[in-house]
Design a protein around this nucleic acid. Sequence first.
DNA 1: TGTTAGCACTCTTTTTGCTTGACTGCTAAT
DNA 2: ATTAGCAGTCAAGCAAAAAGAGTGCTAACA
Lengths: 340, 340
Amino acid sequence: MELSERKKKILQCVVDDYIETAVPVSSKSLTERHLPNISSATVRNELSALEELGYLTQLHTSSGRVPSAQAYKLYVSDLMVKDKLTEKELDYIKKIFLDKADNLEEVIKNTTKVISELTSYTSVGVVSPDVGEKINVIKFFRYKKDTALVLIVTERRLLKDNYITVPENMEEEQLIEAENVLNRLCVGKSFEEICNIKDDINDEFSGYKSIFVNVVEALRVYMTVQESDVVLEGQDKILDHPDYADIGKIKNFLSVVTKKDKVMTLLSGDGKDIKINVKIGTDGYEEIPEDCSLVTATYSANGTKIGTYGVIGPIRMDYQKVVAVLENVGKILESILTNR
Amino acid sequence: MELSERKKKILQCVVDDYIETAVPVSSKSLTERHLPNISSATVRNELSALEELGYLTQLHTSSGRVPSAQAYKLYVSDLMVKDKLTEKELDYIKKIFLDKADNLEEVIKNTTKVISELTSYTSVGVVSPDVGEKINVIKFFRYKKDTALVLIVTERRLLKDNYITVPENMEEEQLIEAENVLNRLCVGKSFEEICNIKDDINDEFSGYKSIFVNVVEALRVYMTVQESDVVLEGQDKILDHPDYADIGKIKNFLSVVTKKDKVMTLLSGDGKDIKINVKIGTDGYEEIPEDCSLVTATYSANGTKIGTYGVIGPIRMDYQKVVAVLENVGKILESILTNR
DNA sequence: TGTTAGCACTCTTTTTGCTTGACTGCTAAT
DNA sequence: ATTAGCAGTCAAGCAAAAAGAGTGCTAACA
């Protein structure tokens, strides 16, 4: 059922006020602050109707109204007036990114830092693996008798966190030989393609099969989100918000947010095309701490997903600000990473 | 002034009880729980004397006694009965380390994890840089026109997080040449030695001076503690302790503990030979959050400092358990890392 | 001289009742 | 459909009273 224009307006004012003050909103304060042309009694009737429809709740009979999760959803999708960032804030974002634009890892760390800084909420981010990412070159670096570091240069980054075990008696030339064969097989191909060719390589790859299997395993690891791909900033910001005056809630929040694996699952489900995505903990999304809200945006450059970034905080969140920050950071980030 | 045996015994009981219950300790409960042979009136006299001497405080005239920082110090150094870990706990420690004993980074992460798990406090750790660490080999890996990754293999680890800028017009052979010269200069030398030879290399190193300077800079970075060398575990554990029922205190704690640079300075001052080191926030140590206690141990293997690990938590900490865990983890860790 | 029983005193914590103030919901008039 | 006005509800704040936990002191005792 579509709400009347007046109901929408009133609901918007309730959410605005509640987000600002954290105090249940009364009919009187609404007429005084936003609606001088109608009486508080009329507003009371409307509030009562909105409560009936599930948009508002009351803590007790004589308290003001508090928005429900349903109300926040409508607010974000329909009612909210989009906020603009100040020049100062925009400059801040640009300055941060321009310094270290060429290192993807740095960019990602800075992204969460900026988001957390500007919104004053905890921010989370994860680099999306890209199964279509193509390999430029693979290099082995043997640094112990039986261990070699695998360096993989792809279109967008340098992967250098995987090791393979090498037979101790393997000569240096053999390792180079293996490297050459591997490069012949892999260069220009995507992770996905390489993982699929594993069967028909016996002839060419003869003696080095175990190495190939190891490298494919390393690639497979890079294809899924790793804990090291998850970035967190401002975990303590939550304490500044009155919604978390209760230790139990803080604990609930921190027990999720301090664990990278949990944050990973939190961010993993997010779709490809959706730009701004709001999930509210109370209904349906089990991964999100109770009474929390997760607002995320997925950024892409040159048609490839870069990563998902967002803010996690109280349901009573400053969505105007958060959405504005996420959109602007996205724009600037994408423009820097596209066609560079 | 030396305390009488009975005073020591009573003080020990007070601290034991207070650590266990978090409730101010009364004369009556002391006689009931630990001292059946003396009357509560006698204990009261002794408590009063101990208060006079600065070991105990009273929140108000009719409350029980609470240990002062001074009392905790004496408790840890003299009074405390050393705790033993259970077989189960010891097995747990061994199992964790045996899995990944050959990767120093993994070992360090696991160390803090184990400590936090077993003590149920937040644990912190930092890998000590070792200025005497000798270099086995240096390798450049050029992966972009103007950027090369610097790989440095030392006696104990593989450093792979530094990049140098290479002149775009530099040929591959020239880079290899530079690598050779650099190895001739550096292999077998310690970080410290290399940083000191920078002046008289002009003749041999001719054209590659900027590269050498870059590499030395990279070494200098490795010689100081890096943020990436700091590990943290169980930041949310603090919330389980009643001492942190107050949001202000939690904030205070987290604002230090979530920031790696702050933890770094916290752990940096610790000496070389001291095994177990207890610092209490209320007096003197400004870096430690107020009302917090930091217990650390420094581990070594083959005569070199591996790192400093410890626990940060409330002053009312279970020192018996914490010291036992730190000592045992240290023993096992050192035995694994020595002469491998 | 050290120890102990007993009692008065102090201070916190809990309970209770009361008052005030903020809202709402309802009703009747517009 | 809107509004003014009023009765009803509930939380929050306050003060006084009661209960409880512990101490310090004094006087007696070994």
